[in-house]
Design a protein around this nucleic acid. Structure first.
Lengths: 334, 334
DNA sequence: CTGAAAGCGCTTACAG
DNA sequence: CTGAAAGCGCTTACAG
């Protein structure tokens, strides 16, 4: 079934069918009805590729997810997905683990002829103003390590001040009397947000005259199971540690469980601080103290910004959103 | 930059460039090198739409997610995503909430010219053997309400026996001495797996001579927050209830928290049973008794089956996987 | 091993 | 309000 078939059956030209398909106003309503009837009858759906080949407008929005596929991302994904589809665009999801985020992104954009793309995660170390020069695409980077927050105008970023947030979290633990504070990161080679959060942690310790210990860095791969295992092993070997700061709530839950299973009490014996502000942190027992990222705002803003960029209603922006330290019962004064 | 540009610059015909692009063997390696060099130099990426327009093979795999976008789905999503990309296919993710799953699916397949599609969730009430007749596409339905498990050969299903699983869960609570057992479903109009799980719950009660009470059905929208709110309200009004069976672990966690916040003890005062077997159920404190779905197997099998179907290496199958009741400390004998 | 040419299924000026 | 025709950027027989 092609547009030509429909045209023949309807007894009109292909241009007319095309006009009906694209809701052009100048078609006699009688003709429109007839064509629509045939389309319906034969269950005809136009070939997207042929359409796209003609129009430069693919209406494809890409979502490029780096590394982990954690629950924090999936909440964002849902929001984005809904908005993108409501706008009549197609959402192409790609997940990758390549070291070079920038190359991956550019290849993705070209291959799928994307109109816009939202990146979740990654560190774009060699990104430059000219990186997207010949592309004409709206780019929004989310949850990305962008150390150099210059006023670059070829892409947008929406982020939180990860270093400040991690500083605040660590400082909160220090203010509560903790000095032996372990940091649980994703993995050793995480150059994304993990890197920046580490810097915030480090600075908070240094500002308080606490020595930063390499062996207090542990890795939970953003997974509850792995976090549990790593924390169990670590806490057994380091009885002096009184607080663990995990850079995701799911890892914090793994850590919390390891404390219980070691016969200790969460908060009273060892404090646990999370990051993300997932619902589950609030509903865990005890509630997990965490840094709450404004995820609804992040997803809402990112799609809004993306479409504004697409429609040339704005120039690129670099937005930094506020986080909130939500106090739970998993951290205690000592 | 088009193939014609590359051909001109390289001093060869477009067919030769095309052959290089598609790794055809019969190109002189000298020519190949030269063309490859130009492609690299100009960062040329072929236009996918034009390619697809010629080849019937789009290499597009669709993932159609119905309704909720819960963490259980996102774990599956990650696995599928990785496998699909490794096979050189593009993953198109679509999320919907239309009542008519079948129409949505068929429209999706046609519009994107999908080679294969995996559906997560939904109830395909009016699905028929002929539904996909003119489509030539591999279809795998996952986590779907397929009451009529006929030996249909136009699509595949991978599922668990949701009714049996829910029966088992309910029966376990009954064996533990509970008689006033509340069931938390997603929402009132869920005709997907929620419907079948409800039937298992109902049958277990009936088989044990326990009256099924309409007012013992509550709805948590597969969300921890909503589950918490609904359960709190319900438990306040129904002091006689000693057990809650929630058909997702996230909802079970919300219920658990509501019990704590009502000043009661999880397990000792009110038992909580979950469903899914998410990691978090195992790491919650106390551990949540749950029905564990083989999610790794589900995602692995679904992709394997999809590609076998694509390559005509198998005919359609209807696979039912086993679940496991994982005992935690959230349920107690009374 | 290589190139010219047809054609995939659309959209869009252009002419009427 | 409508149709014939060109062309989007590829791939693929076909001929050499």
């Amino acid at each position: 079934m092609t547009i030509t078939d429909i045209a023949k059956i309807s007894g009109v030209g292909v241009s007319t069918v095309s006009r009906v398909l694209n809701n052009h106003p100048d078609v006699k309503s009688e003709t429109r009805e007839k064509v629509l009837g045939i389309i319906k009858e034969y269950n005809y759906v136009p070939n997207n590729s042929a359409r796209i080949l003609k129009q430069s407008n693919t209406k494809n929005i890409g979502i490029l997810v780096k590394g982990v596929f954690n629950p924090f991302f999936s909440a964002i994904l849902k929001n984005i997905s809904t908005s993108v589809e409501n706008a009549g665009y197609t959402m192409i999801l790609q997940h990758h683990n390549n070291p070079n985020d920038l190359d991956t992104l550019v290849g993705f954009i070209k291959e799928k002829k994307l109109q816009g793309v939202i990146c979740l995660g990654g560190n774009f170390v060699d990104i430059r103003e000219e990186s997207f020069d010949d592309l004409d695409v709206a780019i929004v980077l989310l949850c990305v390590n962008m150390k150099t927050q210059k006023a670059w105008n070829s892409f947008s970023t929406i982020s939180i001040a990860d270093d400040v947030a991690a500083y605040e979290a660590t400082n909160y633990l220090i203010r509560s009397g903790h000095r032996n504070i372990c940091l649980m990161l994703g993995d050793q080679y995480d150059l994304g947000v993990g890197q920046i959060r580490y810097e915030g942690y480090k600075k908070a310790l240094e500002d308080n005259g606490i020595k930063v210990r390499e062996d207090y860095l542990i890795y939970g791969e953003y997974e509850v199971t792995k976090a549990y295992e790593t924390a169990t092993q670590f806490l057994k070997a380091h009885k002096e540690v009184t607080a663990v700061f995990a850079i995701s709530d799911m890892m914090a839950i793994g850590v919390a469980k390891s404390i219980v299973n070691l016969g200790l009490k969460i908060g009273d014996d060892i404090s646990v601080m999370g990051f993300d502000g997932m619902d589950v942190a609030k509903y865990y027992e005890p509630t997990i103290t965490t840094i709450k990222q404004p995820k609804d705002e992040m997803s809402k803003l990112s799609v809004e910004l993306l479409f504004k960029l697409l429609n040339r209603k704005t120039k690129n922006k670099h937005i930094i959103l506020d986080v909130e330290l939500v106090k739970g019962n998993s951290t205690k004064q000592i």
